[in-house]
């Protein structure tokens, strides 16, 4: 019976301990909807910010994004990457990217190349070691990782998740959408799919809220069609290609006397069609 006596003797100590416990944002508090505000980085999309309880990508925790094909990466993360590189001044690390990132596209997004570091670990053990080292380093402001070929176990994800608590960076792990059926310690889990007119984002786990919110984010204008070609041979019937097939060297040196076809005119001027 010593415990009750102790608690009655030191009521302030117990209250302080409980308060400290409740300050943790990983304590489940039922349907109270109470959560500890966490630092977050603006996603660049108002609709997405509204869905996320911290009004942006949450910092210092693991975020999992599930995709079938790794596409539209910088549409989702470009704004946050620019913020983290330019304002936070840290490194943007691309860990195990699925292909070589194109430097010109990064520059077009406004992401300074001097802050971008690409790592290509060859094994899963190296991948986890790099993830943990980067998450524990204050120099890394944003870590974007793509899961290696070998599946990550819950324990390995937990190791990554624990490492993300050490600093205030943004830690994002891209996985195949099928992997999101497994349980994961990540604080935020989302499914991302590019559709004909929008990016569909489905929030399947977010600490402090109930899952199942779907939102559509607009695609950039440049992704939409300005002209569709019924088929390949329809395109190759265009006057320019007919001319190119006949005399490939003529098209850049000879100026046609009669007004060219609309498409051919745009090509000669070096602009996009339409």
């Amino acid at each position: 019976m010593s415990s009750p006596r102790c608690s009655s003797q030191f009521p302030h100590t117990n209250a302080a301990a409980l308060d400290t416990l409740l300050r943790r944002d990983d304590v489940w508090r039922g349907h109270s909807q109470a959560f500890i505000p966490r630092d977050a980085v603006d996603t660049g999309y108002e609709a997405l910010n509204t869905v996320l309880i911290h009004k942006g990508w949450p910092q210092a925790c693991l975020i999992e994004l599930g995709q079938k094909h790794f596409t539209g990466t910088w549409l989702l993360l470009g704004h946050a990457a620019k913020h983290q590189a330019c304002e936070a001044g840290g490194l943007i690390v691309l860990l195990n990217p699925p292909a070589q990132p194109y430097a010109v596209a990064l520059l077009q997004q406004g992401i300074p190349l001097e802050r971008v570091l690409v790592l290509t670990p060859q094994t899963k053990a190296d991948f986890i070691a790099c993830f943990v080292a980067l998450a524990r380093s204050s120099a890394c402001a944003m870590l974007v990782a793509w899961q290696p070929k070998q599946k990550l176990s819950y324990a390995e994800l937990r190791k990554c998740q624990l490492a993300t608590h050490d600093n205030h960076g943004l830690y994002i792990l891209f996985r195949h959408r099928s992997a999101l059926q497994q349980s994961s310690p990540a604080a935020l889990r989302m499914l991302v799919a590019v559709q004909a007119r929008a990016i569909l984002v489905e929030c399947i786990k977010q600490r402090g809220t109930l899952p199942g919110v779907n939102i559509s984010l607009p695609l950039p204008d440049t992704w939409f069609s300005t002209a569709t070609y019924r088929n390949l041979y329809h395109l190759l019937d265009e006057p320019l290609y007919r001319q190119a097939n006949a005399t490939p060297w003529l098209q850049e040196t000879v100026v046609p006397l009669r007004r060219p076809h609309r498409m051919a005119r745009n090509i000669v001027k070096g602009r996009g069609y339409g």
């Binding site: 971008v116 690409v118 790592l119 290509t120 670990p121």
Partner: peptide, 20 residues
Amino acid sequence: LVIAKIQARIGPKNVFKLSY
């Protein structure tokens, strides 16, 4: 320090930047 640690782990060839 973190770059040196990672280079030591996965080799300098696997740690790079991109330049235009």
